[in-house]
């Protein structure tokens, strides 16, 4: 029998929730809990962390009872579904990495080309027109009109 997807999610999110709560509890203790009539910087974080651990345990514990095995096959089949999302995250990381030295306009252009051409598999004309228009449009609206300081490349835009 395979575990239902929601059950798997609960198991994982329960564990993660407990871990986060625990990290904050331990951190709070080292910050100093203070005394009750003069609570220290770690007092409320400790309480909230402890509540988080308890609540996550409530989510986690019922998942232990039933349905133990998970079919690896099904996970593999599901991977194709994640291709698009994965590529989008990759593009965002690339954007964050490059914008510092390539500047806003060029990075934006490359970002849009990647998303429309490779992720969404659209035609070249559509890709290039959208990429050009969005790079120029965003630059004009946010840099020239709203006067935000967008990062510039070595060529000044």
């Amino acid at each position: 029998m395979s575990a239902s997807p929601l059950n798997q999610h609960d198991r994982l999110s329960g564990v993660i929730g407990m871990l986060i709560g625990l990290v904050f509890c331990i951190g709070s203790v080292s910050l100093g809990l203070g005394e009750i009539h003069q609570p220290g910087p770690g007092f409320l974080p400790f309480l909230v962390g402890a509540v988080l651990v308890c609540l996550s345990a409530i989510i986690f514990i019922p998942t232990l009872r039933k349905e133990k095995s998970v079919h690896r096959q099904e996970i593999g089949r599901g991977l194709r579904k994640y291709r698009k999302g994965g590529l989008i995250v990759l593009a965002l990381v690339f954007y964050n990495f490059c914008i510092g030295f390539l500047g806003f306009s060029l990075t934006t252009f490359l970002f849009v080309v990647f998303l429309i051409k490779i992720v969404e598999a659209q035609g070249w004309t559509r890709t290039l027109v959208t990429a050009l228009c969005s790079a120029a449009g965003f630059y004009f609206v946010f840099q020239s009109w709203l006067m935000l300081d967008l990062p510039t490349g070595p060529w000044g835009f």
Binding site: L92, V93, N96, L115, Q122, T130, S134
Partner: peptide, 28 residues
């Protein structure tokens, strides 16, 4: 066509408040 534009809006929005790239990383 729309989804890359929405992403761009998000990037610029996250970046522009403090003007630092760390905020984009937090957004991702």
């Amino acid at each position: 066509i729309l989804s890359p534009l929405i992403l761009l809006f998000c990037i610029v929005g996250a970046y522009s408040l403090n003007g630092n790239l760390w905020d984009i990383a937090i957004m991702i």
